[in-house]
Measured scan of single mutants.
Amino acid sequence: MASQGTKRSYEQMETDGERQNATEIRASVGKMIGGIGRFYIQMCTELKLSDYEGRLIQNSLTIERMVLSAFDERRNKYLEEHPSAGKDPKKTGGPIYRRVNGKWMRELILYDKEEIRRIWRQANNGDDATAGLTHMMIWHSNLNDATYQRTRALVRTGMDPRMCSLMQGSTLPRRSGAAGAAVKGVGTMVMELVRMIKRGINDRNFWRGENGRKTRIAYERMCNILKGKFQTAAQKAMMDQVRESRNPGNAEFEDLTFLARSALILRGSVAHKSCLPACVYGPAVASGYDFEREGYSLVGIDPFRLLQNSQVYSLIRPNENPAHKSQLVWMACHSAAFEDLRVLSFIKGTKVLPRGKLSTRGVQIASNENMETMESSTLELRSRYWAIRTRSGGNTNQQRASAGQISIQPTFSVQRNLPFDRTTIMAAFNGNTEGRTSDMRTEIIRMMESARPEDVSFQGRGVFELSDEKAASPIVPSFDMSNEGSYFFGDNAEEYDN
């Protein structure tokens, strides 16, 4: 783990906690998980779902989305002020799938948001429990990260689609708070800032007046979040320049895209947490497990152990491969979309394939898809080993990566060399080191050039047997250095459309 220093740990961010010791953190995270579980059980009762239907990941996603929508204050306010045809701002819903006479049927349900809020609060001892809501947002974000390569979004903001390893959390809503900021990748933060800068260039009043003052505060806050992700002084200094700019424009845009590229080699610290679907927490609570009393951590053995003992089902389209669908969801559960496939294969105990080789589309089923041909199958979400999630980018030494994705962002704290394609990355730096950030740029390029592919990161860190909950005997895996390590390699994943 990167030293926490003055930073709060993510469990504290996750639970809005002030400084807590490890036991208190485990208890408050457990409380959050228990609340999600209780809410899910109650919703299944309301909807009269069978046990099997309640364990269907598509039903879980609909129920999670309903509660997130019920608590989305800004959108609710907007919907009330701008009524649109056929949208009731006070209601929320989605597809629920039921097994009827041996076939899967889709039923569109509609609930009062007020009623959903009441059920959620009741499951969370009367609190709004925003930490639990954020947790579900991060699960949705991790699922998107594993399912889609955001080529269009990258290109629109002047970045290269091969930089997708920097895009963790790119679909997280803005209201996801400190826990959300911690899991956002460098590219995601750059993209958010670039969008602001572009608006400022096109709209003279963007930075002016009372609204402009708020915009400015948001801009500086985002700059500080991004600065905190960088691990070298030169990158941090460049972020200070971007933040202090009187009138952010093209120079800042250039600096930010430069920094994003540099992060492929001088990786930023991005938190990883295993956020599971509500249909995993519900049955665990129903079986009598007391998360608050037992304590829970999002970055240790607990999620692995929970998945070892969970039964989750998914709808499967006619030509999809259930094992591939399982891999997709497994990666999402562990926030591992940008991790090295060699490491993932070792931990999972079966070969993890790149996205383009998977015969599976996303987990969600569109409303126009034919239910007649839908089957369902068990998702295999178990693992051979477990490993500690990392909050750091690993040290800054790398190795060759593949054509589709030119770097990785480690999820697990496991000893290995970190793949990246130096030639491709360095070719993108057209040696432009003039301007006010020239000395920093020169320094950053120097550090990137001296990074050695064969150097090892996370020295001495290994994986653990599932029986080793105290992480007492690390097993340090050895990897084939020459092997392909990137998930979005030469990829044809669908595009994420909101």
Results as ranks from 00 to 15, higher is better:
Phe253Glu: 04
Ser170Phe: 07
Lys87Val: 06
Arg436Ile: 09
Ile408Pro: 00
Arg98Trp: 13
Lys214Tyr: 06
Thr15Asn: 11
Gln398Glu: 00
Pro95Ile: 12
Asn492Ile: 11
Ala2Met: 12
Gly30Tyr: 05
Arg121Glu: 01
Arg118Trp: 07
Met440Lys: 05
Thr157Asn: 09
Gly462Asp: 03
Asn250Leu: 09
Lys7Asp: 01
Gly462Ser: 01
Ala366Tyr: 04
Phe479Ala: 04
Pro419Ala: 14
Thr23Leu: 12
Ile225Asp: 08
Ala271Tyr: 00
Arg221Asp: 09
Thr62Lys: 13
Ile63Val: 10
Ala387Met: 02
Ser141Gly: 14
Lys348Ala: 15
Arg118Phe: 02
Thr424Ile: 14
Ser60Arg: 11
Asp16Cys: 09
Ile475Glu: 02
Thr424Leu: 05
Asp51Asn: 12
Thr360Phe: 06
Ala85Cys: 06
Arg208Thr: 06
Arg384Glu: 02
Glu114Gln: 13
Gly295Gln: 08
Ala493His: 13
Asn319Ser: 13
Pro89Tyr: 05
Glu210Tyr: 04
Arg441Phe: 04
Phe291Arg: 01
Pro453Lys: 08
Arg422Ile: 08
Ser262Val: 03
Ile406Lys: 04
Ala401Val: 13
Phe71Ser: 14
Ala493Thr: 11
Glu46Pro: 00
Asn492Tyr: 11
Tyr289Leu: 14
Arg389Gly: 08
Val183Pro: 01
Gly212Glu: 11
Pro83Glu: 05
Arg213Gln: 12
Ser9Arg: 00
Leu379His: 10
Phe230Gln: 09
Val414Asp: 01
Thr257Glu: 05
Leu193Met: 13
Val463Asn: 07
Ser28Asp: 00
Gly126Phe: 00
Lys48Glu: 07
Arg117Val: 11
Arg121Asp: 01
Gln149Gly: 02
Val299Cys: 09
Ile41Pro: 00
Arg391Asn: 05
Arg213Pro: 11
Pro89Gln: 06
Met196Val: 11
Pro477Ile: 00
Gly209Ser: 08
Gly126His: 11
Phe412Arg: 00
Glu81Ala: 00
Pro89Trp: 11
Met447Ala: 06
Ala271Thr: 06
Ala403Phe: 06
Thr390Pro: 08
Ser376Tyr: 09
Arg246Thr: 11
Arg117His: 13
Ala332Asn: 04
Gly212Ala: 09
Arg441Ser: 11
Ser413Lys: 13
Gly94Asp: 05
Thr424Arg: 04
Glu495Leu: 10
Arg55Glu: 08
Glu292Cys: 08
Gln168Lys: 09
Ala27Val: 11
Asn370Cys: 00
Pro322Ile: 01
Asp240Ile: 03
Gly404Asp: 10
Lys198Pro: 01
Leu61Val: 10
Arg391Asp: 01
Arg152Trp: 06
Leu418Tyr: 02
Val476Tyr: 00
Gly86Gln: 14
Glu434Gly: 08
Ser287Ala: 03
Asp127Tyr: 15
Pro283Lys: 03
Lys91Glu: 12
Thr134Val: 14
Phe258Met: 09
Met1Gly: 12
Ala332Ile: 00
Arg384Pro: 01
Pro474Glu: 07
Asn370Leu: 14
Arg74Tyr: 15
Lys77Leu: 11
Thr171Pro: 01
Ala233Pro: 15
Glu53Asn: 05
Leu133His: 02
Leu381Trp: 04
Ser314Ile: 11
Gly394Ile: 02
Ile116Gln: 01
Gly177Asn: 06
Met374Gln: 06
Ala337Glu: 10
Arg26Asp: 05
Tyr385Trp: 04
Asp88Pro: 02
Ser314Arg: 04
Glu292Met: 06
Arg436Lys: 09
Arg55Thr: 08
Arg246Ser: 08
Thr396Lys: 05
Gln149Trp: 06
Leu47Lys: 01
Asn368Lys: 10
Thr423Pro: 14
Arg452Cys: 14
Arg416Lys: 11
Gly249Cys: 07
Gly212Asn: 07
Glu115Gln: 11
Ala366His: 03
Val343Gly: 06
Gln364Ile: 13
Ser413Ile: 05
Phe420Gly: 00
Glu11Met: 08
Phe206Leu: 11
Asn211Thr: 13
Gly349Asp: 07
Glu380Val: 06
Lys7Ala: 00
Gln308Met: 15
Tyr385Pro: 02
Leu172Ile: 13
Ser69Trp: 04
Lys91Met: 07
Ala85Ile: 01
Leu266Val: 15
Leu56Glu: 04
Gln364Leu: 07
Ser450Asp: 14
Asp468Tyr: 12
Lys273Gly: 03
Gln20Leu: 11
Thr232Asn: 14
His272Ile: 02
Glu454Lys: 11
Trp386His: 03
Ile63Thr: 11
Gly86Lys: 06
Asp72Glu: 13
Leu358Ala: 03
Tyr219His: 12
Ile36Cys: 10
Pro318Tyr: 14
Ser28Thr: 09
Asn395Tyr: 03
Ser9Phe: 04
Trp207Leu: 08
Tyr78Ile: 04
Met374Cys: 12
Leu353Glu: 02
Gly485Ile: 07
Asp491Ile: 04
Tyr78Lys: 04
Lys357Leu: 07
Thr215Asp: 01
Arg121Lys: 15
Gln168Tyr: 04
Ala218Leu: 03
Val363Ile: 12
